[in-house]
Structures are given as structure tokens and as C-alpha cells.
Amino acid sequence: MKKAFRILLFLVLSTLLAAPIFAGQQKTKTSPGDEKLVAMNASFQQFAQAKIKKLNNNHQHSRSRMQIQKTGNGLYCARFHEIDGSSLKYKVRRSKSKSVPYVGILSYQERVYEALGRSPEDCKNGKFAAISVIPNKHIFSFKKGAWN
């Protein structure tokens, strides 16, 4: 009896100790839906990075279209807007809509830079510093196979 009990105890303990090892050897299955979301994330990032370039290039006071104003003390101020490339954050969510199955949210910081100078040329070539930051969330929809 005692011998049988010891064998049984040994078997139970062995099973309990081995279970995690076996479990770890099993492959984790990724659902097709998750893989699709990962792919959509990647495509949204690509779309968003191209969008950021368009937003920067087309801003009416972009770096190439600086706003120049004369200040009250006789100096000139140059100002431009630019999105901080290091601030980009991406999020893709599924929607219940069949025609618009995904939405993407692009978060970024738009910075306003200024420099002063004795003349319009001086301030455009001056040392720029960020004077304000505008947090932005830009929402896009995925429709007919493309981000809009």
C-alpha cells in the first residue's frame, strides 16, 4: 500500500511539474483578425507618414512660406509651423461598419517656431525657437481599400 501510494504521489507530482513545460512547447495561435489589425496598423503608419509630409508642405505658414511681421520695437519676426516628427502616435480601431471597417487616429504635436532679426532677411536666417505647441488628433477612415 505504502509503495503504491508513493508511486502514485510521484506520478502526480511529476505531471504537475511537467505541465508548464509541455504547455510552453505549444504554439500560440494568432487569430486572423489580429493579423489583419496588425497589417492595418502598418498600412496606416505608412499613410500617416506621407500625410504628415503633405500637412507640413501645404501649411500656409510652412518653413518655405514663413510669415514675416514687424514687431512693436522695430524688429522683424519670422514664424512657421511644423509637425514634430518625433511626436507621432498611431492607433487603428475596427468599426462596425462594413464599408468603413477601420478608422485611424494620428496624434502629433504641431510646433510654432519664431525668430527675430533687424530685417526680414535677418529674421528668416535667425535662430528659431519653438514658442507654442498645438496637440493634434487627426482621424481618418479606411474605405474601399484606402485610407482617407
Binding site: A130, S132, I134, P135, N136, K137, H138, I139, N148
Partner: peptide, 17 residues
């Protein structure tokens, strides 16, 4: 040292087409 930039209020933008 240059003063820290002023943090403005958030803007949410979307084009509903």
C-alpha cells in the same frame, strides 16, 4: 534659457468627405 513653449489646447481634425 529659452522659455518653454506654450502648450495650446488640443485640436481634433477630420474630413467626413
Amino acid at each position: 534659457p529659452a522659455p518653454a513653449p506654450v502648450m495650446k489646447k488640443e485640436v481634433i481634425t477630420f474630413n467626413l468627405l
